[in-house]
Design a protein around this nucleic acid. Structure first.
Lengths: 249, 249
DNA sequence: CTTGCGCGAATTGTCGGAGTAATACAGACG
DNA sequence: CGTCTGTATTACTCCGACAATTCGCGCAAG
């Protein structure tokens, strides 16, 4: 391959950024994943030609195949002999997979899908707050307070502040002691991250989010399930309203 | 490999059942996945020795590596140079991934996790029924009626009946027109499938599930959001009670 | 003319081996 | 006692070949 560069200038796919810690196949998977989730490839039928596609990306067939395995594991593609590997319909995708979510928000996020994620939060998080209020331990309350404290110090304008925001929501899910909900935490957290970032990008946030979060924290600490649920519902709905307003603005 | 069988009788891992349509690597991934999710390997640190482990399973390194990539994509393991591939803590697993769910229920299902899944259903499905009542189309109502009809004809004692049950719940999620919830449908559906099967296995179902489902269907068809949410909540809670009772019996 | 069967070609699947890169660990050094 | 460097181990990448599968086409039989 040491002499192929002279004749072929097919860098159009942009050399996979392997600087990102991820191994080469991870970069290939990310690249293909973004192309698929972003709609650049389309849920019809593509990716034919294993060897030629690998050559196009300037990686070996092994690396390309392992990347495709990752995509197949997330339900994005399906490989069958003779028929090639085709992109599956969107309904088969594991949209809540953290990687898939990251890929979905790598480009311009789809407003409709962002709305869907907020709706999911509106369904899950209030119920989670209710369970958390019933089952929280002293450690859970401490984690909530710590996250809230970090949110106060930094604002949502800084990455540290947004990380604290995610830590807060994660702490609520953790306190439910429900493995299925905790697993959703990774997805919810990603949704919170991307939507908050999206909201921030358009204009400075118009409202102080601290009181909303404090109300949730206090209700959970007090063990008041109904109040925790109501406070969290208000929080999510206000966040949704902010996002919608900033999109229309 | 044609002569290796004579000296080595290490079939203890049981020849990967590749008859199941799945390719060899899929069988390896399933085998490892069940071992991990089932707790046979433990979230500590294992799977060291890529070549030797591949030899143990009597597959090539390529197939073994691709299987490991699948597991890594689902958050079960993490590979790092020099340190080997270690099983990640349970909190990092994508428990809602359909494959992971299937592996979790391949052996004896963990009662605690089953309880967690029911709690997830209790959170998501009533809210989904509410949204479905608001947004359902004529096609959605037809799908609900068709599933209900199939449930009436076959019972939950037959596979066809259980498939109809899953189709019913899937139709509700579909009617929400929310991609995130629809994506959860695959997980919820798996949870419904396994828990129903688990319930069935212990003793004949003590209650007729048709009226509960019919109430949900009618409320959604009528566009009555509150009634749909209440009916679905009752359905899930009764199902949970059945499961709990059959576990204690 | 229609229908069924089998052969061939194209594509993914599987294999084994060689060389590279990264890193945990230990030992030397300040 | 802390830091640095070297080394050994492990996964990562690449390569080329062969096997398995299956779709499509042509041929033959009805």
């Amino acid at each position: 391959m040491e002499d192929s560069e002279g004749s072929i200038e097919l860098d159009l796919v942009a050399a996979p950024a392997r600087s990102s810690g991820r191994r080469l196949r991870g970069a290939v998977a990310q690249q293909l994943g973004i192309a698929i989730v972003g709609g650049a490839i389309g849920p019809g039928e593509r990716l034919t030609g294993e060897i030629e596609h690998a050559a196009l990306l300037e990686v070996s067939r092994s690396a390309y195949r392992e990347a495709v395995q990752v995509l197949a594991a997330k339900g994005l593609v399906e490989s069958r002999t003779k028929a090639g590997t085709r992109v599956l319909p969107r309904s088969r995708w594991n949209l809540l997979d953290p990687d898939v979510l990251a890929w979905a928000f790598a480009g311009e996020p789809d407003p409709g899908f962002t709305q869907d994620l907020f709706e999911l939060r509106a369904v899950v998080e209030p119920a989670a707050a209710r369970l958390a209020a019933i089952r929280r331990t002293a450690e859970d309350v401490a984690a909530l307070h710590a996250a809230l404290h970090r949110m106060r110090r930094h604002t949502l304008a800084t990455e540290a502040g947004r990380a604290a925001d995610r830590a807060f929501h994660d702490a609520v899910l953790q306190a439910t002691r429900n493995d299925a909900l905790i697993s959703l935490s990774a997805s919810i957290g990603a949704a919170v991250k991307w939507t908050t970032q999206y909201k921030q990008r358009l204009r400075a946030l118009p409202r102080d989010p601290i009181p909303d979060h404090a109300r949730v924290s206090d209700a959970i600490a007090a063990g008041d399930a109904a109040a925790a649920e109501a406070a969290m519902r208000a929080l999510v709905e206000l966040a949704l309203e902010d996002t919608r307003r900033s999109r229309e603005a």
